[in-house]
């Protein structure tokens, strides 16, 4: 019984360490992502991710971002062209690739996924970004 307790104890500690370090990873990624956002995205998507109505789609509380994570990553990586509907409004803009590497794209995704009222349960890694190919 004592042994069992001890094992349980270890299991609890190690699992909480895993959760803790994942959170830590996410936090760090979000911080880096914020810098990338300020440099590369804010010009059009604005300081609070609100975008410019009818011109640049919002990222804050965006249904498109929430439901189309892959397409969103692909858009940042390879550019986004053609009509998309975001929160009921149609956008037909043209975002060219920004020249960000996979890690930078993962960071900025984690930032926009967890800012301005957005909350994501999954962390985007550079491997996730690397796996996304052009259409």
């Amino acid at each position: 019984m004592k042994l069992f307790k001890l094992l349980l104890h270890f299991a609890l500690i190690s699992s909480s360490t895993v959760i803790y370090s994942q959170e830590n990873m996410l936090q760090k990624s979000i911080e880096k992502g914020q810098e990338i956002y300020t440099d590369f995205c804010m010009n059009c998507h604005m300081v609070n991710g609100e975008g410019v109505k009818n011109t640049f789609p919002p990222l804050a509380k965006s249904d498109y971002l929430k439901n189309n994570q892959e397409a969103s990553i692909r858009g940042i990586k390879y550019g986004q062209k053609g009509e998309i509907t975001v929160n009921g409004i149609k956008y037909n803009g043209n975002m060219t690739p920004m020249g960000l590497d996979d890690k930078e794209i993962a960071d900025v995704m984690n930032f926009i996924n967890n800012s301005w009222g957005n909350l994501s349960e999954t962390i985007v890694t550079k491997e996730d970004v690397a796996a996304i190919k052009k259409d």
């Binding site: 440099d39 590369f40 010009n43 060219t96 690739p97 920004m98 020249g99």
Partner: peptide, 8 residues
Amino acid sequence: IYVRGQGG
């Protein structure tokens, strides 16, 4: 050409 942000 170095394509980065607003540059290219």
